[in-house]
Design a binder for these strands. Structure first.
Lengths: 347, 347
DNA sequence: TAGAAAATCCAAAGCGCTTTGGAAAACCCT
DNA sequence: AGGGTTTTCCAAAGCGCTTTGGATTTTCTA
């Protein structure tokens, strides 16, 4: 309760012990008897002792901080998926006694920031967000020697670093497959930016399903942009107003799906009847029903919680930091399919 | 380019100067000649010198980190407005050489975290998010002596601390007023949690407008919950299916407005014709059109960019940290009204 | 019970920076 | 040129922790 600030020296003086012993007692070293350890812990509690992070960090070379650099594009668009991911990650960090540090950066500054992070150990490790098909950050971080876990995967060398990803390819294959079986022949894909690896994999899955059914791949039915609501609206309108409109649309994000839904409604089309909509769903918390109780979702979707992903990536990174020279770990999550009300046989 | 790590000692040895002089040269102290300062800076650049944050922090007692504690509710719902706010704030921080630290916490842990932050100066200041009507954090932070800026305001004592807020009350008064002038008599308010101060002010504005026009305030037309999409959907359906349904609805967030739109569409009502929808709009980046070019918005709304707010709050906090005993500063932003396509005279 | 082994503790040296309190050098004026 | 300023620099003492290398005490073994 007391807000007085005690440091190690004062604490050990009050105990009549050396700083060494007190430090060791508190940090669980074996060369201190359980009796004194208990005494020390009690005193620390009572005097409200909290070690200074900067002093600890200076002495150990560890900061107990995980870095996230968030790429700020020219449009200052912040990826809303980021907040859910971070919620999960910071949860894992808090449990392990780590803090989360964020630095906003233009893409071209990112490399320099990593160097800065590492050279003066401001952070003990970083999470790499949004890996591209060609991902220079991975080699950079490896050469710097800064521990990292990638959320997603880069296009190549999947075994030289740790990552956690969902099976985007099979998710989209499954979704497309389902629509084809319903009878759809012209299916559009409102994809994310295909410089991103996840988007490329999704497209691959989509095309695989089409090919499997001997259906043509029409490039006019695929769009690729930053996944937000207006993009979903805009591209849906454009596609549906074209001469040979698709009968089904697959969205790479529920945000663009919401935009698509708005467009469809505005055009007087009934989802699931006149037009079919399906989407990938990151289970963004602010779009989820609060109760969560078994009510089936509105959109037909494949889903996987990005918040859970954040937590898992955080855990993986921390365990990697603790055991520095452990082998890279990979985790590939399957996403769940969920039939909602927005799909049906074509008219 | 070189990844070698040089510290002050090595740098000063290579220059044939003392650590004192080099440190002073780099930190812009006047007691060093411009000639040596230039020499020092050149060498620092060449050797890629970066001061160690923990050492600096230990020596100065300043961490150059701003703390944000994000309250994690039981539902693990992360406020999506948070990501945009943080984008703006971290931008301001980056400019001033500060980093942003996030710690996830259950509401009951928050006080302890502030104490922890301050006692060992892990952070130099904090941003207080989501102030309640009664806000214990303010007194706590004042007693601890940790600099802070509130995003929003608490209900009382507005002059003892720094804050930045939008004029929620007049914004909602204006919106309600507009709907009344269009001819609406039964107007619903889909509000945020009214334990939050901003929601209370919004309701006040809404009620003021009604009273000004001698219209009754019907508690059945007001709902109060966490602002997300499903909430908007659910409450809209419920309200519109009731015996004496409103002809217009005002939403406290564009997320619930999107939910409301979904409900309305599903019921076969045309927004702006059969039913009027208006909303407060935080200009969340992922709902904004990428081009931004003068296209009028879809929703009738009052708006103010929460990202800009984040940047401003960040700036205010940093200036307060730099000038510790400056008087509290307040900023009240007016929000802009924008007539969209979702409102019209009642049927 | 003596001697060795194990358990327990400590003084002091860092970690990499800032800053105090001077000292030395350079400059300025009459 | 001599005195006082002003400028320029430095040695060393912290900041609050961890950790090395011993010293001291206790426990165990025969």
């Amino acid at each position: 309760m007391s807000d007085s600030v005690v440091n190690l020296k004062q604490l050990s003086k009050s105990l009549g012990l050396s700083q060494t012993t007190v430090s060791r007692a508190l940090n669980g070293f074996p060369e201190v008897s359980e009796k004194t350890r208990a005494k020390v812990q009690a005193a620390a509690e009572k005097l409200n002792y909290r070690p200074s992070p900067s002093a600890t960090s200076l002495a150990t070379g560890k900061s107990r901080i995980i870095g996230h650099v968030v790429p700020v594009s020219e449009h200052r668009m912040i990826n809303p998926h980021f907040s859910d991911f971070v919620a999960g990650a910071s949860d894992a960090y808090a449990e392990a006694g780590y803090d989360l540090l964020i630095r906003a950066a233009l893409p071209e500054q990112e490399a320099d920031i990593y160097r800065d992070f590492a050279s003066r150990n401001r952070v003990d490790g970083v999470v790499v967000h949004g890996p591209m098909v060609h991902e220079p950050r991975i080699k950079l971080l490896q050469s710097i020697g800064l521990p990292f876990v990638v959320h997603g995967r880069a296009g190549d060398e999947e075994h030289s670093y740790s990552w956690m990803d969902v099976d985007n390819r099979s998710a989209f294959e499954q979704l497309t497959h389902y629509l084809i079986e319903l009878g759809h022949r012209r299916i559009a894909l409102i994809n994310g930016l295909e410089s991103m690896n996840f988007a490329r994999r999704r497209r691959l899955g989509y095309e695989t399903a089409l090919s499997d059914h001997k259906l043509p791949v029409d490039p006019d039915l695929v769009t690729s942009e930053d996944m937000n609501e207006p993009y979903g609206y805009r591209s849906t309108r454009r596609l549906l107003e074209a001469s040979s409109a698709p009968t089904a649309l697959i969205y790479s994000s529920i945000l663009s799906a919401l935009g698509g839904l708005r467009a469809v409604n505005e055009m007087g089309l009934r989802p699931g009847k006149d037009i079919s909509l399906a989407t990938y769903d990151d289970r963004l918390s602010f779009l989820q029903a609060g109760d969560g109780a078994g009510q089936s979702s509105y959109f037909t979707s494949v889903h996987s919680s990005i918040q859970d992903a954040g937590r898992r990536v955080g855990e993986m990174l921390i365990s990697q930091i603790k055991d520095k020279n452990s082998a890279p770990k990979f985790e590939l999550w399957k996403s769940q399919m969920d039939i909602g009300k927005t799909t049906g046989p074509p008219r």
